[in-house]
Each structure stands twice: as structure tokens, then as C-alpha cells.
Computed example of a mutant assay.
Amino acid sequence: MDGDTWVEQGQKIGTANELREYVAAIGAEVQHMQTGLGRAAGSVLRGRSWLDTPRDERFDHPDLLREQLDMSVTPAGMAAKDAVYRQSLAALLVALDTVAHATLTAWLADINANDPGRPA
């Protein structure tokens, strides 16, 4: 979706079903963004595209975060530009995870409001 579509769609929501659909669409878009950004970052860090990486060497974005990006201490000898790049990618992936968690929370709240005893 382009930049204004989300805003326009959000302004037109008037029912609980429309809100459910909107939250589900956000969740799906976030998942696509996580996958794409994780693959792109992994490709840059490994120096070859995702498609050119053998399946047994591919990893998902949580692994990428833990092993390659998220730093509490900058490794010795790492250039500042590399550290900023890695930390920025880590922050973007964490932000997308936060949105994914928020969409799950909204879905669970909707289930709870309709039937608190229903298995989630």
C-alpha cells in the first residue's frame, strides 16, 4: 500500500469487522517487511543475495538480530559507520516485531471481548 492508503483506510473504519480486517492487514504487511528487511540485511552482511545463499546457510530475522546486528557493546575494531548501520537495522527489525506483537494483542483483545473463555 502506498503511504496515504493506510491513513485513508483508517479514517473509513466504522465497524468492529472493519477494524479486525485493518489490524489483520497491518499484521500481514509487517510480516512481509520483516522478511524482506531481514533477507536484505543478511544478504549485505554475507556479501551475497538471499537467493544465492544455500538453504542451510540462510537464517531468519531473529537469528540475524541475535548473531549479527544487536550490539550492547561495539566489537573491537568495528568502524562507526558499520556499527550505526547494524544498530539501525536492529532497531527497525525490533520496531517491526513490536508492531507484530501489537497486532496479536489487538486480535486477542477482540477474542476476549467476544468470548473470554474461548481458547486463544
Rank of each mutant, 00 (worst) to 15 (best):
D2F: 13
D4N: 15
T5E: 13
W6E: 04
W6C: 01
E8W: 04
G10D: 12
K12Q: 13
I13P: 02
I13K: 08
G14R: 14
G14W: 07
T15P: 07
T15L: 04
A16S: 14
N17Q: 12
E18Q: 15
E18S: 03
L19Y: 11
R20K: 11
E21M: 07
Y22T: 03
I26S: 02
G27P: 02
A28E: 14
V30R: 00
M33Y: 10
M33D: 07
Q34I: 06
Q34M: 05
T35M: 07
T35A: 12
G36D: 14
L37P: 00
R39V: 00
A40I: 06
S43Q: 12
V44N: 09
V44P: 03
V44R: 08
V44S: 07
L45I: 06
R46D: 11
R46Q: 06
S49L: 07
S49D: 13
S49R: 11
W50A: 06
D52K: 10
D52F: 04
T53Y: 13
R55F: 09
R55Y: 08
D56P: 00
D56F: 10
D56Y: 13
R58S: 08
F59K: 03
F59Q: 07
P62T: 05
P62D: 04
D63W: 06
L65D: 05
L65E: 02
E67I: 07
E67C: 08
Q68H: 11
D70G: 08
M71H: 12
S72W: 03
S72I: 07
V73W: 06
T74N: 10
G77M: 09
M78V: 12
A83L: 09
V84Q: 08
Y85F: 15
R86T: 02
Q87K: 10
S88V: 04
A91Y: 11
A91L: 10
A91W: 04
L93M: 03
L93C: 01
V94G: 05
A95E: 05
L96H: 02
D97F: 01
D97R: 07
T98N: 09
V99C: 02
V99E: 10
V99H: 05
A100C: 02
H101D: 14
A102K: 15
A102M: 05
A102Y: 07
T103M: 01
T103R: 07
T103V: 13
T103I: 03
T103N: 02
L104P: 01
L104H: 15
T105K: 08
A106C: 15
A106R: 03
A106F: 03
A106M: 10
W107H: 14
L108R: 06
L108P: 01
L108M: 09
A109V: 05
D110W: 04
D110E: 09
I111P: 00
A113V: 05
A113S: 14
A113R: 15
N114H: 15
D115H: 09
P116D: 00
G117E: 15
G117H: 14
R118I: 00
R118A: 13
R118V: 00
A120W: 14
A120Y: 13
A120N: 14
